[in-house]
Structures are given as C-alpha cells and as structure tokens.
C-alpha cells in the first residue's frame, strides 16, 4: 500500500510498459512470473492492473510500471486509454494457439498504431508457453517474420518455467534507452516526481480515461 510513492529518488529512469494480446495467452502470468517468480494459474484480468518493478539494466536503475490489460475484445475501449504515455509495448501470443498469433497482426497491431502517443515506442513480440513444445502451433520462424513486419523485438518464453521472462523485460528496457525521445520521457518522469513529490497537480495525464 502506497509503496510506490517515496521511491522517487531510488531510480534513474521510469518507463511505462503495456502488455496486450488475446485472452489467456498469459499476460498476467508473464508479469507475475517476472515480478514475483510465482507461476500459478491466474484468474482472468478484469479491466486493467499494473505492477512496479525496480531493476538495473545497462548500469541504470529503472522503475518499470508494467500495465496488464484484459484480453477480451469488449474491454478494449477501456484498455485502449492506457496506451497513452507508454514507452514499451509487449504483444503476447500463445504459441499453442494459432489464432492468438494471427490476432496480433490482424487486431492488436492496429490497436497499437491507433492509440500510441509516442510513435517511437518500442514494441516487442512475445510467444508464450514454449514449455508446451509438443502443442506448438506457431513456429519460431513465423514469430520472427511477424516481428520483422511489425518492426518489433522478438522473444519466445515461458511464464511457467520462467525461461526468457526476465530477458523479455530487460531487452525491452535496453532498447527503450537507446531511443532518445523515450529516454527523455523516462528521465522527465523521474524529475517530475522529485520536483513535486506530492503536489496537487497531475503528473502525466497517464491513466486519465474520460
């Protein structure tokens, strides 16, 4: 409770990352696997939620605010307002369910283009559930091809075994730091917090969703 405040000077950069993709691909699991190393089954996400992770990448202390969104189509109006101000977007599919992969290019990639505020935002394509290799329905090559098409990073991982989970977030963060405009956003967010730790006036209009 309230743990996120008062940390303003313990990190150098602050980035907002968004997880999107179809229902049941494992967005929440990926996040929880990253944050707490827990790999339990999770109930479907209702609306949005987020978690904060502090980590050091490339010699910089980072605060990652990772937003987890509901996958079902009808939550999309709600979740779309959370794209605002994101520096990184992770598009997740399930390697055992092909339609979750095709939906990324048919649906989700379009959502991203529509709602992103910073066009430099780094995208990353993630194929989850590689622990179920025998059920695989999307090949690694296909994943790489789509990533190329979308101009995004690519990784396959397993929230269950935690294979590649940390790499996923770290690579994304590294890439974000290579982009000057994003780097600036990330350090501005920190400055803002230090300068006015609890002033009335809103920081970024982050989650405003009227």
């Amino acid at each position: 409770m309230g743990s996120s405040s008062g940390q303003s000077n313990s990190y150098d950069l602050s980035f907002k990352i968004l997880l999107i993709g179809d229902s049941g691909v494992g967005k929440s699991s990926l996040l929880v696997s990253f944050i707490s190393a827990s790999t339990n089954d999770l109930a479907p996400t209702i609306g949005v939620d987020f978690k904060i992770k502090l980590l050091t990448v490339g010699g910089k202390k980072l605060k990652l605010t990772i937003w987890d969104t509901a996958g079902q189509e009808r939550f999309r109006t709600l979740t779309s307002s959370y794209y605002r101000g994101a520096q990184g977007i992770i598009l997740v599919y399930d390697v055992t369910r092909r339609e979750t992969f095709t939906n990324l290019s048919d649906v989700w990639a379009k959502e991203v283009e529509l709602h992103l505020t910073n066009k430099d935002c780094v995208k990353m394509l993630v194929g989850n559930k590689v622990d179920r290799e025998s059920e695989r329905a999307v090949s690694r090559e296909e994943g790489m091809a789509l990533a190329k098409e979308l101009g995004s990073l690519f990784l396959e991982c397993s929230a269950k075994t935690r294979e590649n989970v940390e790499q996923c977030f770290e690579e994304l963060a590294l890439k974000i730091m290579e982009v000057p405009s994003l780097l600036e956003e990330g350090s501005n967010a920190v400055k803002r917090n230090i300068l006015k730790p609890k002033e009335g006036h809103p920081a970024p209009p982050g989650g405003g969703c009227c």
Partner: peptide, 19 residues
Amino acid sequence: KLIIEKYSSMDEILRECNS
C-alpha cells in the same frame, strides 16, 4: 486520507483499489 495525502496520480489509486 491516504489518497489525499499520498497519492498524486490515478494509477496509484487504482493500485490501491486493486490491492
């Protein structure tokens, strides 16, 4: 009290509610 004194963004309130 917590919201007024400590929270300076809607995100924090959301987090509070979700937890």
